[in-house]
Simulated assay, not measured.
Amino acid sequence: MTQQQQLLFACIENCCYFKLSGELRYTNASGMDDLVERLFTSKLNCQQLVVDLNDVSFMDSTYIGLLASLARFCQQQQLPRPTLFSTNSDVNELLYSLCLEQAFDIVQQATSAAVELSAVSAQHYSEQQHGQMILRAHQALIALNDKNKAAFQPVVDLLKQQLK
Rank of each mutant, 00 (worst) to 15 (best):
D34C: 11
S112R: 10
L39V: 08
Q76R: 14
V155A: 02
L35S: 06
F85D: 03
Q109E: 14
I12A: 14
N54P: 08
I12Y: 14
V56A: 07
F9P: 00
D33H: 15
L79E: 02
V36L: 09
L70W: 09
L44G: 01
D55W: 00
L144W: 13
V115L: 00
T41V: 05
D55L: 09
A29M: 02
C15I: 15
S112K: 07
P82V: 11
L117E: 01
S21T: 00
S21Q: 10
Y96T: 12
Q5H: 06
A119Y: 03
L95V: 04
A113F: 14
V156P: 01
V156G: 02
F9T: 00
I12M: 12
Q123K: 14
A10C: 02
C74T: 12
I134P: 00
I142Q: 10
H138M: 10
R136Q: 10
V56C: 06
T111K: 05
N148Q: 02
Y26I: 12
H130S: 09
A150H: 08
S69Q: 12
T2V: 03
I134L: 04
Q161W: 11
S86K: 00
L163T: 05
L24N: 10
L70T: 10
S61F: 11
N145C: 14
S42W: 11
F40V: 01
V156F: 13
T62I: 09
V56R: 04
D52L: 05
F104I: 04
V51F: 07
K164P: 00
Q128R: 03
E37S: 12
F58M: 11
E101Y: 09
Q161E: 14
Q76S: 08
Q3L: 05
L95M: 07
A71E: 03
Q75C: 10
K164T: 09
L117D: 04
Q6R: 13
C74F: 05
L84E: 05
Q4Y: 07
D146P: 00
D52I: 01
C15T: 13
A114V: 02
Q123E: 08
Q123D: 06
Q153P: 09
R72C: 14
M32C: 06
G131A: 05
L49S: 12
V120L: 03
R136P: 05
E127T: 11
L159W: 08
L70H: 03
N92Y: 04
V50P: 02
M32F: 15
L7C: 08
K43L: 11
L67F: 13
L159P: 06
C16I: 13
Q6M: 03
L163W: 09
D146W: 08
A114P: 00
D157H: 03
L84D: 04
S69Y: 06
I12E: 15
C15N: 15
L70V: 13
Y125T: 08
A150L: 14
N145F: 03
C74N: 08
N14F: 13
R136V: 10
F85R: 07
I134K: 07
T83A: 14
M32A: 10
I106F: 00
A150P: 00
I134S: 07
T41R: 13
D146H: 12
E13T: 12
E13W: 03
Q48N: 15
G31T: 02
Q132G: 06
E101N: 12
Q108R: 13
Q129H: 01
Q48D: 09
C46Y: 09
L66G: 04
